[in-house]
């Protein structure tokens, strides 16, 4: 079970004004922090970061892990699919990879822990893929792909249980990328998912977040569309099955988030909450990064050989 920890600073000099001879080092330190933060926003692969609210307080660290090095994640996915194709071919079967057949890059999934953040997120997603191929629906095909149905690798978090195939070509590909660390990779994914959920729940009892919500509520009342909080509003509007772009309450939601700085406060508090959760088990972030790097290293080799 992940536990909440306190990372608030409490050193003896925290509330004192620094002396004159301390100011230059402090300025330099702040400059270094600013430059480091700016550098971290420049992604080496040139990928577009997800939209940030005004006065972006920084990405919550669990979300940052999920979005870490998208180019590496892409290489891992492509290598995985090629391994599955080769494995299925050895069994005399043709595996049509949706990823390798796709034109262009899929849009990354965007987290919306506080509801929509921009007008484009109110729009229906216009995306229709080709879907599954019915000609592949044979038992032999599924057996080659996923192995026997009773051979599974299962991991458990505090609240959920997840399993994947232990044999077959999908398992073989994963094993090639992760070696004997597959179970840990599955476990880390579940625990990070739960930690993100826990952190979101923690924010609900945060006083600064309450204050931001009250300001948002006041703004919404002023707009003639009173609501309890952004998620409750979204839920009530989704039930109407209408185009959210045409919904006055949803437009007011976006306006009030901007006018009151709601998202800045919400993300700041979520960042603190996620950091607490991560600090409770430092191995999660370390293993996520380490195992991502490991898979990427194998993927690079495979993709180089495959050229």
């Amino acid at each position: 079970m992940l536990q909440l920890t306190d990372d608030t600073s409490g050193g003896p000099g925290d509330s004192q004004s620094p002396g004159r001879r301390l100011r230059l080092p402090i300025v330099l330190a702040l400059l270094f922090v600013a430059l480091t933060a700016a550098a971290s926003l420049v992604r080496p692969d040139g990928a577009t970061p997800r939209p940030a609210p005004p006065d972006d307080p920084g990405e919550p660290p669990i979300f940052a892990l999920f979005e870490h090095d998208p180019a590496a994640q892409r290489r891992i996915s492509v290598a995985n699919e090629r391994l599955v194709i080769d494995c299925m071919a050895r069994a005399g079967l043709r595996y049509e990879s949706a990823l390798l057949r796709q034109d262009g890059e899929p849009e990354p999934e965007q987290q919306q822990p506080f509801g929509p953040e921009s007008p484009d997120q109110l729009a229906p997603v216009e995306e229709s893929g080709p879907g599954e191929d019915p000609s592949l629906g044979t038992d032999d095909y599924l057996l080659a792909l996923y192995g026997p149905g009773d051979r599974r690798v299962t991991v458990r978090g505090a609240r959920m249980r997840v399993s994947g195939p232990a044999e077959g070509c999908v398992a073989e590909a994963t094993r090639r990328l992760l070696g004997d660390k597959r179970r840990r990779w599955m476990e880390v994914k579940v625990l990070l998912f739960e930690a993100a959920e826990d952190a979101r729940h923690d924010v609900e009892s945060d006083e600064e977040f309450h204050r931001a919500t009250r300001q948002w509520q006041g703004c919404m009342r002023g707009a003639g569309t009173p609501a309890e909080d952004p998620l409750a509003l979204l839920d009530s509007r989704l039930a109407h099955q209408t185009d959210l772009r045409e919904d006055p309450a949803m437009r007011a939601d976006l306006q009030c988030k901007r006018d009151t700085g709601y998202l800045t406060t919400a993300y700041t508090r979520l960042t603190v909450a996620q950091r607490h959760r991560l600090n409770a088990d430092p191995s999660l972030a370390a293993d996520w990064t380490r195992l991502l790097d490991r898979q990427d290293s194998v993927a690079r080799e495979l993709l180089t050989v495959g050229r």
């Binding site: 595996y95 999934e109 919306q112 822990p113 599954e132 979204l234 989704l238």
Partner: peptide
């Protein structure tokens, strides 16, 4: 998920893939 073509199943809070994952 028993996809035969490498498709992930993404489930969303709202219709039309809205409301977040």
């Amino acid at each position: 998920n028993s996809s035969t073509g490498g498709y992930e199943s993404h489930y969303y809070y709202g219709a039309n893939y809205s409301g977040g994952l």
